[in-house]
């Protein structure tokens, strides 16, 4: 029998359906790849059809066997988009369903540890959005924040921003993946901006798209940032450790003095 390669649409739902099909067809694929990844030579192909109900059944099975936290580990690890993460997760799930109890504690089991580490990495990236995201108020009053996280984790942060900034309308935009979310004081909806009024690289709003008061607050924040440091304790290495340079382009305090 030839080895078989699974192809799916790249979504988490699609992946869960792949798991469903693997069990119902009793397959043992050598790879599970999103359709945009070039397929392997010399394998049979099987294309997964995404189906919300099947995805739901697999998800329920994961949560029932492993608990909510296991579900979170699996989902966050999936978002890492690490090469062949689908096969890793498939092995994890086989192990989980074979043991019929949570296995996330079994950290000396290589697949469990790997999934845990990916979960941690992805969660940390999501937390960095909460830390380093910066809003600029635009001329029409909406608060706009660009970001380009390493992983596709913007959706994980929406509840935080929605409850915290409930009384201001905002847009949080992933400039690398070119989509974002708009909150209109009622609901959050997914949007794509085709003709941006912001710099594509840094996400900075054009001067004429800014609220007239915006400049003043940015200037105050920059002064504060400078003055609150203690010169005698200067330690740029430590600063960079906590605040990696890749985030600096979004940070109001690290932009050129306005």
């Amino acid at each position: 029998m030839n080895s078989i390669e699974y192809r799916y649409d790249g979504t988490f739902q699609g992946f869960l359906c792949a798991v469903f099909d693997i069990y119902s067809r009793r397959d043992d694929p050598v790879a599970i790849h999103p359709t945009e990844v070039p397929s392997l030579l010399f394998t049979d192909k099987y294309t997964v059809i995404t189906n919300a109900e099947r995805a739901e059944r697999v998800w329920d099975g994961i949560v029932r066997t492993g608990g909510e936290k296991t579900g979170e580990h699996i989902y966050h690890a999936f978002l890492s988009c690490e090469k062949n993460v689908e096969i890793l997760l498939m092995r994890y799930l086989r192990h989980l369903f074979l043991c019929k109890r949570p296995v996330m504690d079994d950290l000396a089991y290589p697949d469990v540890l790997k999934v845990f580490q990916l979960y941690r990495t992805v969660s940390r990236e999501a937390h960095r959005i909460l830390m380093f995201l910066r809003f600029e108020q635009s001329a029409d009053g909406v608060y706009f924040a660009p970001f380009a996280p390493k992983y596709d984790v913007l959706p994980l942060t929406l509840n935080h921003f929605k409850s915290r900034f409930a009384s201001q309308s905002w847009i949080i935009y992933d400039t690398a993946r070119n989509y974002g979310f708009y909150y209109d004081l009622q609901t959050v909806e997914r949007i794509t901006i085709n003709e941006p009024a912001f710099n594509r690289e840094t996400g900075k709003l054009a001067r004429n798209a800014e609220h007239p008061d915006e400049n003043q607050w940015q200037a105050l924040w920059q002064i504060y940032f400078k003055k609150t440091a203690i010169a005698e304790r200067k330690n740029l290495l430590l600063q960079q450790n906590f605040m990696p340079k890749r985030f600096w382009k979004y940070l109001t305090e690290k932009r050129a003095i306005v």
């Binding site: 380093f132 940032f225 203690i230 906590f242 940070l251």
Partner: peptide, 13 residues
């Protein structure tokens, strides 16, 4: 708690 920035002395803001 959430840190939002780090000054040049490496302390959090």
């Amino acid at each position: 708690g959430i840190c939002h920035s780090f000054t040049e002395d490496g302390r959090c803001i």
